[in-house]
Amino acid sequence: MSETVSNVKTLVIDEQEVSALAGQTILDVARENDIYIPTLCHLEGLSNVGACRLCLVEIKGGNKLLPACVTTVFEGMEVSTHTERLQKHRRMILELLFAERNHICSVCVANGHCELQALAQDQGVTHISLPYRNPELTVDASLAQFTVDHNRCILCTRCVRVCAEIEGAHVWDVMGRGINSIVITDLHDNWGSSSCTRCGKCVQVCPTGALFDKSKVGSDHPKYPDFLPYLNLMREAQ
């Protein structure tokens, strides 16, 4: 019995007392309790990389900000998810993303279905104070079904992870580094001539208009990433 008891942790998130299982992340516990923490690279069903830094939270007693998606809970933890400091960084991170590549929402296939766009609205970003970088990037429409538009890519690597972890093909990866990083298929080959299985999972998990389905017109491109937890569940059962 003592073991089960020690497995349950109690903690405080935004002044709300919650309980959690040992090993659970702050994000999991927050979502179970309807406490909203913004995320972008995280997607339920994929491994966590802690890269977008939007889910950073403050933990009482520590000066460092920690990503809620990978930080596990401990007994007596006191988490703040929406301090002024965190909000300031979140807005800056979104600004950095908008200024990094060419996100032209009005003509984007994902307009109205884009997680980046929604987050900007959610976090109150009404303009970008940073200078736009205006990089020259390509659009690869060589595959019959789907297109990759690097202008809209935020390098969340969901496509890379879903292809490697769920589809098992690992056709996507990231090449280059720093500000010059881009997602590639195979040896930076055209998507159309790559070893892609055409399963379309990457398109469904892409949070922006970087990967989209050609068969849809205009900005009617809703994404359906919810298949992932189900898929994982079915696999575990086998």
């Binding site: 830094r53 950095l96 010059n180 990083s181």
Partner: peptide, 8 residues
């Protein structure tokens, strides 16, 4: 290039 604050 992994995390946004450093990359951009």
């Amino acid at each position: 290039g992994k995390c946004i604050p450093c990359r951009a």
